[in-house]
Amino acid sequence: MKSESFWYIFINASLINNFVLAYFLGICPFLGVSGKMETATKMGAAVTFVMIISSVCAYGIHALLVAINAPFLQLISYIVVIAATVQLVEMVIKKMSPALFRSLGIFLPLITTNCAILAVALFQTAKGYSFFGSLAFALGAGVGFTLALILMAGVREQLDFADVPKVVKGTVITLLIAGILSLTFMGFSGLGS
């Protein structure tokens, strides 16, 4: 299809239908680790990385499941493979770059239960993207997630010094900021039409 260029898939996943701000995917880490700029960046990088790897895996699994005609195993195999991938990535990073492991370490286990990762796998299958389309999608999703996380972190860091009313402190204000960011990202709708 003409309009499904890789560029469009990327823009769509990162800006127009941002994973966090339009699909609510990865809200838990979004609320959890967006308090500090540094952790937000690292979490974003880790998620993007794992997204790309699981996207590739999911593409392979899907092809396999189609071949053996067992669509009912899709969910269970995706989740198992993603969990295993995260473990593997964790081990590889630990071995290859202990420094990177130290800074990313605590985020990796969290990622297993990050719905955004599983969603990348499920969505790319549902949308029937090609291999490279899937990659563009995973990258877009990761960048979108990181973008939302970083923008949120910037605002929240400032709030540390603000006189935020007690009743909205914590989750409420974070959700409200997410709502405002979500409104803001609506400006991108229709981009590329």
């Binding site: 701000l21 609510f24 009743v167 409420v172 959700l175 997410a178 709502g179 979500s182 409104l183 609506m186």
Partner: peptide, 25 residues
């Protein structure tokens, strides 16, 4: 319309949590 858009989801949940917090406080 905003209420059925993503932003409305965030705002509504924030609203309910606000009520809960207010009640608790």
């Amino acid at each position: 319309i905003i209420m059925i858009l993503p932003a409305g989801g965030f705002f509504t949940l924030a609203f309910w949590l606000f009520l809960f917090n207010n009640y608790k406080l």
